[in-house]
Structure formats: structure tokens, C-alpha cells
């Protein structure tokens, strides 16, 4: 996992660094003091190595905590696991924000589109019935007018 890999590579570098900074190397750099006090040189070296490792490890833990790296590594591992089937390169931000944001709106726009289609159909159906009623009403009125016309002519 990413978390383990991170720890491994960091610890490996630390170990190699300590291995490179061997006591022999240390004593040869501090030769003048080493000749004067070999035991003391040894204990100073050991304390140096111990403190170096402890403080670097502590600092790395601090970096991991600050960046919430454990959590992020785990969730990234999960995402990688889920994406295993996916072969082609996945989408990446185009660099044109409005383009990327608008395609994020597509599902809602599609929903809105189907809503509008539905209500438009309902409205058209309503209006069809209304139009028939209006036509019927017009016919009725025409009939009444004719009746009235006939009566009036009769009286006239």
C-alpha cells in the first residue's frame, strides 16, 4: 500500500544515510578529537545517530499527520483498486473551468429537460382539450345566435 511504501522508502533512506555516516567515517572526520578521547567519540557518535534517527522519524510523522497522509494514501489505494478495470486514460480537467463545470451540470440539465418535456406534453394535452371545448363553445354560440336570428326574423 502507499502508506507502507512511503514508510519503507523513507526508512530505507534513513538507514542508508546512517550506514553511510558510519562510526569509522565519523572518527576519521573528527580524528583530532578521536585521538584525544576515543571512548567519548564513540558515545557522542552513538548519541548523535540515535537522536538523528529519532528526530527525523518524529518529523516525518509530523509531516504525515499534518498532511493526513495515512488517510489519503488509504483512500487513494481504494480508488486505484476500484479503477483497476478502467484501461483508457480517465478524464482530466480541461483547464477551461466553465467547460468542466458545465458538463458537471449535465445530469441536472437532463433531468430538467425531461421535466420540461413532461409538463409540456401535459400542457399540450390540456390545451387540446381546452381548444376542443372552445370550438364546441363557439359552435354552441353560433347555434344560439342562429336560433335567435330565426326567432327574430319570425317576429319581424
Amino acid at each position: 500500500s502507499r502508506g507502507q511504501l512511503f514508510d519503507t522508502v523513507v526508512n530505507t533512506v534513513l538507514e542508508k544515510l546512517v550506514a553511510a555516516g558510519s562510526y569509522e567515517r565519523f572518527a576519521s572526520c573528527y580524528r583530532c578529537f578521536y585521538k584525544l578521547q576515543p571512548e567519548m567519540t564513540r558515545s557522542i557518535y552513538e548519541e548523535f545517530i540515535f537522536q538523528l534517527q529519532a528526530s527525523i522519524k518524529e518529523e516525518i510523522q509530523e509531516v504525515k499527520k499534518e498532511g493526513k497522509l495515512e488517510l489519503l494514501f488509504d483512500s487513494l489505494d481504494k480508488l486505484v483498486e476500484e479503477a483497476k478495470e478502467q484501461q483508457e486514460p480517465a478524464w482530466r480537467p480541461s483547464g477551461t473551468p466553465e467547460e468542466d463545470a458545465s458538463s458537471a451540470m449535465v445530469p441536472y440539465l437532463l433531468k430538467h429537460q425531461s421535466y420540461l418535456r413532461r409538463v409540456l406534453k401535459e400542457k399540450e394535452k390540456d390545451n387540446k382539450q381546452l381548444a376542443e371545448a372552445v370550438l364546441a363553445g363557439r359552435g354552441r354560440i353560433k347555434e344560439l345566435q342562429q336560433q335567435i336570428q330565426a326567432r327574430r326574423e319570425a317576429w319581424e
Partner: peptide, 12 residues
């Protein structure tokens, strides 16, 4: 990895 899409970008 190039084949991975982050959750917030699934819509794309």
C-alpha cells in the same frame, strides 16, 4: 494513475 478518475469528477 492516468486511468483513475477522482470521485468528484465521476460526472465527466
Amino acid at each position: 494513475p492516468p486511468n483513475l478518475l477522482l470521485p468528484e469528477d465521476k460526472v465527466h
